[in-house]
Amino acid sequence: MEVRTIKVFTTVDNINLHTQVVDMSMTYGQQFGPTYLDGADVTKIKPHNSHEGKTFYVLPNDDTLRVEAFEYYHTTDPSFLGRYMSALNHTKKWKYPQVNGLTSIKWADNNCYLATALLTLQQIELKFNPPALQDAYYRARAGEAANFCALILAYCNKTVGELGDVRETMSYLFQHANLDSCKRVLNVVCKTCGQQQTTLKGVEAVMYMGTLSYEQFKKGVQIPCTCGKQATKYLVQQESPFVMMSAPPAQYELKHGTFTCASEYTGNYQCGHYKHITSKETLYCIDGALLTKSSEYKGPITDVFYKENSYTTTIK
């Protein structure tokens, strides 16, 4: 009895394709271990004539594949690729409408935090270190965002349907971005203890939790000093293409032309909904596939993004 075979390709990165001759009487799992086709788990399936010449994702289970996976995804987590594939199996079914010149995501599976993050990423200057993220990001900007969303979920250790947080998501993504040249110098002034300067680099240099107003941050924000008295913390120097200011959701007025974009969060910790506000020729609110415009805006804002380049204080 002759062994019926077909020729397929296996890959971990969709760049390096490895030619395989597979036995049609055995499952993919018996031949390769966990195997995925377009995100779908085909591990328990036997090869079919229609699979001839198709590319299958496999887990990096030998040295060659491990090197290829690390170079593309910059992670050695053995569960990463499987999590990416199972997320992709959902995100490829989502709709990605162009809204006001940006790629958004039609609401499904509690994905409003991903839509808000995706919209924000198209408006701030950011370059990702893992080629996987950078490639998928370019495709997302062009309207094909399924891979990018699935990668975000995998890097953030999230599953489809789980509630997510924009600030946490951005923080994970910033860790995989090139923020080497970003720098922030802060000064804390206390009447009792004097003053202390701190220099922050990388992710810490672009994120701040405690106030939404970048102007206020430049002037000074009140913080408790270690001595128990009130101290003032203010920005001395900022070198970065953008800054992200966050605070627990509270009524906040966004003035046209003073910011790049913002995240609105309605609801409580267990259950809520994100919308995205962007400042173009007027203010726009993007909620999944829905767009509304207004000249002014007041609502429960939790993150505001500002364009920056270089700032030095005039406070002496």
Rank of each mutant, 00 (worst) to 15 (best):
Q31T: 12
L173Y: 01
A146D: 08
N49H: 15
K93P: 04
S294M: 12
H18L: 07
I301Q: 01
P60W: 09
D13M: 02
H18F: 06
P224Q: 12
I315P: 15
A115P: 02
T211P: 02
K233A: 12
T312D: 07
K293Y: 11
W107V: 02
V185R: 06
M170T: 03
D13F: 05
Y155I: 03
P97Y: 06
P249W: 02
S294Q: 14
L102I: 09
N89Q: 08
K191D: 15
C271A: 10
L291K: 09
S263I: 12
Y113A: 03
T199P: 02
Y284S: 10
K46D: 11
D180C: 07
K275P: 00
H90K: 11
S25H: 11
A115F: 04
L114H: 02
F56N: 04
K95N: 07
T55E: 07
T282P: 00
A154E: 02
K106F: 06
F70N: 09
V22H: 03
V203S: 10
L173S: 00
G53Q: 12
T232V: 14
P60H: 06
I6T: 11
T43R: 11
K127H: 11
F9M: 12
E239R: 12
T226G: 14
A154V: 05
I15R: 12
L133N: 00
V58N: 07
V206H: 00
L59C: 12
I152R: 02
A154I: 05
L151F: 02
Q238G: 01
Y96F: 11
G220L: 01
S50I: 13
L119S: 04
V206A: 01
K95E: 15
K233R: 14
S263T: 11
V22Y: 02
M85A: 05
H48L: 13
A117L: 02
N187P: 00
K275A: 10
Q122A: 02
G202H: 02
V42K: 07
I15E: 08
A132M: 04
T232L: 13
I223H: 14
L59R: 10
A142D: 14
L17M: 10
K158N: 02
K298E: 15
M85G: 05
K233P: 01
T76V: 13
A146G: 09
A247D: 05
K298I: 14
A250G: 12
V21T: 13
N268C: 09
Y297H: 09
K229G: 15
P47A: 10
E125I: 04
D41F: 06
Y28K: 05
A231M: 04
G272P: 00
G220Q: 03
H74W: 04
P241W: 00
S181I: 07
L121E: 01
N129Y: 07
V99M: 15
R139V: 07
V58Y: 06
L179Y: 00
H18E: 09
K316W: 15
G143S: 04
M245K: 01
V221I: 15
P97I: 13
W107N: 05
G210P: 04
T312N: 09
V188D: 06
S104V: 04
T10I: 13
R66L: 12
C112M: 01
N157W: 05
P60G: 07
P60A: 12
I152L: 09
A150H: 04
M207N: 03
L17R: 12
L114P: 04
L65N: 09
I105H: 05
A247Q: 07
L212Y: 02
G299F: 03
C156D: 00
T116M: 06
T302L: 00
C182T: 04
L121D: 01
C227W: 01
Q195E: 13
S310Y: 15
T19S: 13
S50D: 14
T76R: 09
V189C: 13
K255L: 10
V304Q: 00
R184M: 03
Y84K: 04
Q197P: 09
T11V: 05
L65V: 07
Q98R: 10
Y57T: 12
A150M: 02
N129I: 08
K93G: 10
L163N: 06
Y73H: 04
S171V: 12
C112V: 00
H276C: 08
D180R: 09
R141W: 06
P249V: 13
A177V: 08
P47T: 04
A146P: 05
T260I: 15
L133M: 07
Y155S: 02
I124G: 03
K127Q: 15
K298P: 02
T55G: 06
C225T: 02
T120P: 02
S79M: 15
M170K: 00
V12P: 07
C227A: 00
Q251K: 11
I6K: 08
K255T: 12
W94I: 02
Y57V: 11
S246Y: 06
I286L: 07
A289W: 02
T10S: 09
N111K: 05
T312P: 09
F259C: 00
I223E: 09
C227K: 01
Q122D: 03
N14T: 08
Y284Q: 13
Y113N: 03
N89H: 15
S79Y: 10
T226C: 10
T169Q: 05
T55L: 07
T266I: 11
K293T: 14
C227N: 02
N187V: 12
Q195T: 14
L37E: 14
L81H: 08
A231K: 06
E162G: 06
T5V: 14
T5M: 13
T282E: 13
A289H: 15
Y208C: 10
Q230Y: 15
T278I: 13
F70Y: 11
T91N: 04
K219Y: 07
S246I: 00
K191V: 15
T266E: 10
T35A: 08
T35Q: 05
Y72F: 10
A40P: 08
L81A: 04
V67Q: 14
V188R: 09
G53C: 11
M207R: 07
V21L: 14
D38E: 14
G39I: 07
E2I: 10
M244S: 00
Y306W: 03
D180M: 10
E253R: 07
T91D: 04
V206Q: 02
A69K: 06
T64L: 11
A146Q: 08
H74Q: 14
K7G: 14
V304P: 02
V21A: 12
D165H: 02
K255Q: 13
G39H: 09
R66Y: 10
G202M: 03
T120N: 12
D77R: 05
V185M: 06
Y96H: 05
T282Y: 14
N110V: 02
I277D: 00
P249D: 02
K201I: 13
D180S: 11
A132G: 07
A140I: 11
T19C: 08
I45H: 11
C271Y: 12
G257D: 09
K158C: 02
L81G: 07
Q122L: 05
P300S: 11
A247F: 03
Q134W: 03
